[in-house]
Design a binder for these strands. Structure first.
Lengths: 167, 167
DNA sequence: ACGAACTTTCAATAACTATTGAAAGTTCGG
DNA sequence: CCGAACTTTCAATAGTTATTGAAAGTTCGT
């Protein structure tokens, strides 16, 4: 397999994976492109390489900046802005975990807390409801703790600990 | 807060969460409804409760069956089919992890393996590419192992181990 | 083997999300 | 303060995914 094909294929696959991680397809493709590129790229180059419009490139670059997984850099003597991706996969995963925790886990935890002190009207339905909410809350809180640890941890420490538990 | 409101709110919130976990909104709502319901429900009841059409109900129930997170049950003397959800949140999470591993991690691992033995043409680009692919592959494989452990593990063992590492 | 009770399918369409590209906005050297 | 170089916005539109509901299919008791 030739390098250009391989690059193409990786960008596609990364696009799909990113999509299921909460990014959108283009966002993930831009990210993949920046990941494999040894130097920072300009909007122009990204547009070209992925055959997308200026507006699209701009919006998705901004979203990636928001997620904190790419950085804007300036090159001396150039007016254009360039972008480069965090290359450390571990740091990337931590960043994604952080964002998703904020976007997904926090809202459900809020609802679970709210809904947890509903008054049961004595019906079987409402008793079951309370029970399920309690269980969900417990689970969500444990997951939150685990994520928190993941987000704060150092790579080597984390994998060492995890490898131990995988035995 | 009253029970009916609380139920409504939980179903909405669960719908959103489910969505970001790879289910679709209706699928997740049906699931939430079955979670909080003490008895198994018929298609009819699900349609009514969530105000959705027969076709929609049917398709999403089937998808939930495919994912293995709800079960079809028959009630003696009734011709209709009823559905109930796995109530154990842990078992549910394991099931979702299993499905997502199959749908997401496996394809990218396949691509990474394929792309890993690209011949470098000596360019800086292709060298960087190889480096990144190697890192990604390493990460994806470790994650795969971790997921595997999660999927196969028992609840108490898992949380005990995890709680230890969270210290 | 008929028909009532129920489930499944699927073409039409509604709802949502992503993309384009031209226009408006910003920045900066001279 | 002008205009070239660049970035951002946004209304129009393309593309995708979800939903409906009527029609076709299945199952089962009699």
């Amino acid at each position: 397999m030739k390098y250009t094909e391989a690059k193409e294929e990786l960008i596609q696959a990364w696009g799909n994976l990113g999509y299921s991680w909460g990014l959108n397809k283009t966002m993930a493709q831009i990210h993949a492109l920046l990941m494999v590129s040894p130097k920072a790229l300009s909007t122009e180059e990204i547009m070209q390489d992925l055959s997308i419009s200026r507006g699209n490139a701009n919006m998705n670059i901004r979203a990636l900046l928001d997620w904190g997984i790419i950085a804007r850099i300036s090159v001396a003597g150039e007016r254009k802005e360039f972008f480069k991706s965090e290359k450390n996969v571990w740091a990337l995963a931590r960043q994604v975990a952080k964002e998703r925790r904020k976007r997904e886990l926090e809202p459900i935890l809020k609802v679970l807390k709210e809904v947890n002190d509903v008054q049961t009207d004595g019906s079987e339905e409402s008793k079951e409801f309370k029970k399920v909410v309690k269980e969900l809350k417990n689970f969500a809180e444990k997951s939150d703790g685990l994520l928190e640890t993941f987000i704060r941890s150092e790579e080597s420490w984390f994998w060492n600990t995890v490898l131990k538990m995988m035995k």
